[in-house]
Write a protein that binds this DNA or RNA. Sequence first.
DNA 1: TGCTTAAATGTAAGCGCTTTCACAAAGTGT
DNA 2: ACACTTTGTGAAAGCGCTTACATTTAAGCA
Lengths: 333, 333
Amino acid sequence: MATIYEVSELAGVSLATVSRVMNGNTRVSEAKRTKVLAAMKELNYRPNSIAQSLASNCTNSVGLLVSELYGPFFGEMMSGVEGELRAAGKHVIVAAGHSDEASEKDAIEFLISRKCDALILHVDAVSDEYLLDLNKKGTPVVVINRYVEGLGESCICLNNELGGYLATKAVLEMGHRQIAYVSGPMWKMDVRERLAGHKRALKEFGCEVPDSLYIEGDFHEEGGVAAMQQLLKQKQPFTAVVCANDEMACGVMNCARDNDLDVPSDVSVMGFDNVIMSRYTFPHLTTIDFPSGEMGRMAANWVRHHIYEDKKKPLNTLFEPTLVLRDSLRKIA
Amino acid sequence: MATIYEVSELAGVSLATVSRVMNGNTRVSEAKRTKVLAAMKELNYRPNSIAQSLASNCTNSVGLLVSELYGPFFGEMMSGVEGELRAAGKHVIVAAGHSDEASEKDAIEFLISRKCDALILHVDAVSDEYLLDLNKKGTPVVVINRYVEGLGESCICLNNELGGYLATKAVLEMGHRQIAYVSGPMWKMDVRERLAGHKRALKEFGCEVPDSLYIEGDFHEEGGVAAMQQLLKQKQPFTAVVCANDEMACGVMNCARDNDLDVPSDVSVMGFDNVIMSRYTFPHLTTIDFPSGEMGRMAANWVRHHIYEDKKKPLNTLFEPTLVLRDSLRKIA
DNA sequence: TGCTTAAATGTAAGCGCTTTCACAAAGTGT
DNA sequence: ACACTTTGTGAAAGCGCTTACATTTAAGCA
């Protein structure tokens, strides 16, 4: 691999000049620029980006930490981040945090050790203080789907409370009053927000629901199945079940069917996230759209603007969820 | 951030000694090692991995190129790669190739420019020659789900032909003889292999199928829907449809239902890949397991052994698909 | 004790870039 | 013509490490 030195030699200029034409931030005479470019082409020169990083103290890489690399939710987010960042010539280094505090911290340390210029984090186990501290210590951080007081505009959030509200409101407007709710793990912030929205809608419609219709799920299909089984075992009647995500809604629908209940004739089901899969289920799932790809793209843009381009132009960091009506919700008689 | 120099100063040793205790490949006296370790801890020293990379000509990072970052198939693969590689302290840089030749080449260039120690590729648009050339020019490459003559053991493959065979054999054994086939894009190697397996099974059972029952799909749900629509529009009867992947099988099932056909009473459906989603569909999809996570892990291990540990121990690079029986396939009367 | 050999450590030369600084060349305005 | 900017360029000092080589120290043995 040719080095900058060989290029400078062939072009008959100094190292500095070659570097200048590469970076394009200083003026170079047309004559030398042409020579350098020709020499580069002839030698098939590619700058060594590691050397560039060391000298410039900028690695052109950003770390992306998600809970899991699989799963439709993160897939779209990652896709958004990667697309935007690569278009800007930045590398993205991925890591999985597995929703576990030690693992998340470990992953963050790992990304920092690679000197990422910034970190895009979707974490739920780590504390707000930890994130704040991280940022204070000089690692630019943007957090997805979580609001951290003090991190300000670098939190790319969905209004989860509103999502929860919209979901349940839609169910209520269809006439349902006996509404079961399958939440995610309650230690997660977004789970509590969605639940809060649910309760707000209930209150608004003057609807009271017994505690036994609240089940804490695990965000997985299995959890949905388990929740539905428990719900069915109880005598407490219900005509609809609102789920805190689509996977669990899937489980609920499958379990309903296994118990000879038709969705939506016998039970209506509401999801959350609008994961790709929800379009393919039977019946097609009515859900709340979580624009994860869009948010990933926005996170990437935040990094581009704030870290690489220094244009502190304001970005949209609060996204609004929307209702996606499909077939799993039906008006009650 | 403290540098190695400050550590050496504080510990009262030379730079080289500090470097030695870090790398642990040369003997250092216990006394000095202890001092150095203490100094490191006191200064909260973290080696600058960029500088290490430049000096050692090893970046400890491997590039991972997949067609798309979303989608269950790649998700599991990536997850396997990341898990294994991070455990070994290696960074994974991801990129998406979008099954487009220019885009794939671009992504590969991009990863090389970051001086990845090796590349793990899931590509389908780029030619064998290109990959061979890449490898010859000094970029260690491991290819997933594709066999490239000359790359030998660094191809992590699934026996797609066998998968295609198993799928169709299972359908035939259920008594079906009028079997439609929805393939993926025929320019993809694995698509042709799966089809070859399909035809072998057909031949083995002495079953002849008219051309009109072969439809070229796009590997997406929409393609499955379109294929099924076309099949239904034709007068040519069929009792089962074998699909080259699960997404399309989903589309086929949805389309069947929209036309008041019950799966599997009226039509049986067979998938391929055993994507997570296939467990959640209704009916649960009978399919062929593609151990993508396992293959990702194997690719990562190949890199670990061949690039970082230089133990050329043989690895399992040819995976066998297996049949996963669920509910979308039924014995014909 | 003196000599040989091995082990531990330090010195210094890179790795391939960026960037500051100094300086020469070429314009400007008066 | 002069002093005074402006513009283009090169020399050289890093960036924070690794590692070949030189040097010192310790150990082994006759």
